[in-house]
């Protein structure tokens, strides 16, 4: 076990990938000598050279599109998108090309491209630097979408994403890049399957589902609820597509109440999909409606008011109270 931050864990995961898989390479803006704006690729160009750690022209469609071409030639590119709000110039390539290549080739071609996107708010930044666009990608068949909440998962998920034959988008919780935790670099242990949810904390009165940056918030809310005598189960979703409905459903069958929390706006978000599936699968177990805690239906607000936008412990506890009032 080693203690490291999420940023360092991804850095180490990428290092292990580059060392172990000669066909892997990194592409992105400022990922070379600078090591990326968040230093996630720090030092890698020195170790692996500019053919494996590629500072690209400043063009997101170009990054994804050429990564697809490299994948068709047998390479495993890992693309860094500098910030969530800047993935959109590459959205066309991701949704019309990357997601569909395997299907439209009748299974003859695979394009194992990984796209890393730092996402979410809470860093007091200017516009386009704090968004959570995961639902826009989750709606697209052909993509897999995962998001680590802790260093151990971050270390293993990046490597598992590269090994996956399908395109994988990793949403990295940027405000947690400096969160420290234990990483077992010898074995993924319970994190062997990146597409499975984890029950982080057992409980009997209600379930909170969260992912990425809100996982620590959900845990803190559950701890606070415990002081009031409430036993709350917390699930870290880990994978957004596919979504591990078995784990979520099993938990709801036990607790009867479900709160889903994410930073992304609730309307059309992942929480709505979870609520719908749970109502189909566990209708008779539900003691209360599924309650969503999320961002509002507005462009991500200015930094000075983002505290009012982002779900926090109190917002989750308020939702918990509502769920328990039924």
């Amino acid at each position: 076990m080693t203690t490291m931050t999420i940023a360092k864990a991804i850095n180490e995961g990428l290092r292990a990938t580059l060392a172990g898989n000669p066909k892997s390479l990194l592409m992105g803006e400022d990922i070379g000598p600078l090591g990326g704006v968040y230093r996630v690729t720090d030092g890698l160009i020195g170790e692996f050279g500019p053919d494996r750690v590629v500072d690209t022209p400043l063009a997101e469609s170009g990054i994804i599109g050429t990564a697809i071409g490299l994948a068709l030639r047998g390479y495993s590119p890992v693309c860094e998108i500098q910030f969530d709000g800047f993935v959109f110039p590459g959205f066309n390539q991701i949704t019309t090309q990357l997601a569909k290549m395997h299907a439209r080739s009748n299974g003859n071609l695979t394009v194992p491209v990984v796209v890393r996107i730092p996402y979410g708010g809470g860093i007091g930044s200017v516009e386009h630097h704090s968004e959570s666009p995961e639902a826009l990608f989750a709606h697209t068949a052909g993509l897999r979408i995962i998001t680590p909440s802790n260093p151990h998962d971050a270390y293993w998920m990046i490597q598992q994403a590269v090994e996956c034959a399908d395109p994988v988008i990793i949403f990295e919780p940027k405000r947690r890049y400096w969160l420290k935790g234990e990483v077992d670099v010898e074995s993924p242990g319970p994190s062997a399957d990146p597409f499975k949810a984890h029950v982080l904390r057992e409980g009997t009165d209600a379930t909170i589902v969260a992912y990425g940056p809100l996982v620590p918030v959900a845990l803190a809310a559950a701890n606070a609820a415990e002081e009031d005598g409430r036993s709350v189960e917390v699930i870290d979703l880990r994978s957004i597509s596919p979504l591990d409905f078995d784990t979520v459903t099993a938990s709801v069958q036990k607790t009867g109440r479900l709160i889903v929390a994410h930073e992304a706006p609730t309307f059309g978000g992942i929480g709505g999909e979870i609520a719908a599936r749970v109502s189909e699968r566990a209708f008779h177990s539900l003691e209360a409606p599924v309650i969503r805690v999320g961002g509002f239906h507005m462009p991500y607000p200015v930094a000075k008011v983002e505290e009012d936008y982002l779900p926090d412990i109190d917002r989750i506890l308020e939702a918990l109270d509502r769920a328990l009032s039924y």
């Binding site: 469609s61 599109g65 050429t66 071409g69 068709l72 030639r73 390479y75």
Partner: peptide, 12 residues
Amino acid sequence: AQTLHAVGYAMG
């Protein structure tokens, strides 16, 4: 869209 795939393939 394929013009970028072509360049990526050439980079490969």
